[in-house]
Design a protein around this nucleic acid. Sequence first.
DNA 1: GTGGTCTAGACCACC
DNA 2: GTGGTCTAGACCACA
Lengths: 124, 124, 124, 124
Amino acid sequence: MFVLNVKDDTPVYVQLQNQILEYIALGILKKDDQLPSVRSLSKELGINPNTVAKAYANLEIMGYVYSVPSKGVFILEEKVQEDVVLKKLEELSMKIKDCRNMMISQEKVHQLVSQIYEEEKKDA
Amino acid sequence: MFVLNVKDDTPVYVQLQNQILEYIALGILKKDDQLPSVRSLSKELGINPNTVAKAYANLEIMGYVYSVPSKGVFILEEKVQEDVVLKKLEELSMKIKDCRNMMISQEKVHQLVSQIYEEEKKDA
Amino acid sequence: MFVLNVKDDTPVYVQLQNQILEYIALGILKKDDQLPSVRSLSKELGINPNTVAKAYANLEIMGYVYSVPSKGVFILEEKVQEDVVLKKLEELSMKIKDCRNMMISQEKVHQLVSQIYEEEKKDA
Amino acid sequence: MFVLNVKDDTPVYVQLQNQILEYIALGILKKDDQLPSVRSLSKELGINPNTVAKAYANLEIMGYVYSVPSKGVFILEEKVQEDVVLKKLEELSMKIKDCRNMMISQEKVHQLVSQIYEEEKKDA
DNA sequence: GTGGTCTAGACCACC
DNA sequence: GTGGTCTAGACCACA
């Protein structure tokens, strides 16, 4: 279900958080769905339980998830969808600004967008 | 001339490098222009001289700058090279893919691009 | 009859105990009244029978309840005892001290008390 | 500067968070003040650095503090004061409701408030 | 079985 | 020196 990229320099627990948020945004994870247990997921991904727990704890503090001790961790989903989308668009905006500032032409960027949307989800 | 954001999670020396590259791309820094001295710039920005030196050293390694001992550091090229642009575009591609995967419409993204390019450099 | 909140961080069996004590204090549960059976209550609340049994067992240890094997569990006292009230007042004291230490005015606190006592039990 | 209570069942890192928030609310810690380093504080309190780091990280996620890697952790203080006060009053309200529900008289509670405010800060 | 807390200690990038 | 990340493994309360 989750894919970690060791080459990526973003921390493992952040990668996990982001993937969970993406699944929520996509509607794959719904309100009150249970996330995999800390231990099972850590074993599956070959990482330390603490790392999974950290991701879950952060998501809880951020209000996307609630944990019931000795039961599990569950999706909260209230306004999450728009939150996540807005955050992604904000990140995108920064990158677009970088491109503009480096004198990359607007046409070039539009082209890239079209191209990526057309290659559908070969790499998702 | 340079603006650093300590609360930003990107390292200070990377922020500095990027801004210098940006100024080169924009033609503000031209071939053989001299960069501020390590000492003066570090004092001006309130950061450690080592940090400035590291940024300059990296730029030299990357081939955008040459240093003349006991003289200073100077711009080598008038244009940022292909690879820097390619790297930026690669980063942009990842973000666009994220948006596509989250079912954000292609139109929305095109809109954002246009909007950002139109607001020129109010916020650069 | 009982309302549990799984998202609350206080253990389920403690929530149950407290509510039973509250009903005793309020005179809703009287001497020799029978509590629901472990099995029926656990089914009704959707929780593990062990959890209900634990709450009952604790109440028996604390002397508020007695169990007759193969008969059921019954209320022993008509009134909650001093120590439970004292414990609650102790908890309240700590919170009041916190407020005082944070420079919240005495008037503000008195106001809050009055307000809560006046809204009766809309939310109990 | 900080006092931990091992007998208290609230987690050490939560105790730390709360004390820091209290100091902010009291104005003892001000905007851009630096918190003690993770290592020095952990040594001083005799606890593991991870535990201190966890408290700091949570405060950062909650938006009360910002950390500059290799520099330190600093107070952010934006609207923090009211946030913290509101949270405290909310906690107090819950305890007052408990008392009311256990038939403790309103006079008794007012008395307790007055008494605590009068003993000044013998125990702060 | 579950999550929560904590310790001990490692390595990293950065200043 | 600083914070950030991660591992390995312990113990606890709870269901």
